[in-house]
Amino acid sequence: MKVVVVTFPGSNCDQDCHRAVELSGGEPRYLWHRERGLSDADAVILPGGFAYGDYLRAGSIARFSPAMEDVVAFARQGGPVMAICNGFQIACEAGLLPGALMRNRTVRFHSFDQYLRIETTDTMWTSAYEPGQILSMPVAHAEGNYEADPDTIDRLEEDGRVLLRYVDATGATSEEGNPNGSARSIAGIMNEQGNVMGLMPHPDRAMEAVVGSVDGRGVFQSLARHLNGPGAK
């Protein structure tokens, strides 16, 4: 699988994503935000960071970069787009995903390992996990508080488009298990077509035991399985 990682000025997880693709048997390539061209891409990653310094609102300026025009067109044609952390914020601003990411309830930057629960495995992003599987992945954000109008959130739930929730150590959703205050503990969602996923936790930073967790591998394995066909491992 050929995966393009878009680098914005201020991205800081583009190398993690590049490596995560390599570790998953894919061929990664960077695309600078001023560049165009996704014709060779099987999938695109919008990485974490602080694109354009998060000025105005996180992701609000990045969405107007030339590369994003191509990413939006790629997504509209059904191309898989994985939007992690700042990438999730950019994808929401660009209208690829519903809702918005507001300031954490604590008004603090959160940087710690967070428990998550896989809510559905019937997607190109989560097929390598078990339903209800509890994961631990790093989170690193100040604006991760997912909000949308109640109808939108009901629709996400009904369609099975909530992929991940924040949970506590017992695997249950709770106040303390949802530190940023996201609506219904939502940590990751996908669009209606299922080809765009946004999540605040970092699967790209949970790929190797040496960094503390390998729970992020499943996201990349799921994508590889989807792109390579059911016969591939």
Partner: peptide, 8 residues
Amino acid sequence: LLDPPGKA
């Protein structure tokens, strides 16, 4: 909508 900075 919850406004965390306002609340703080």
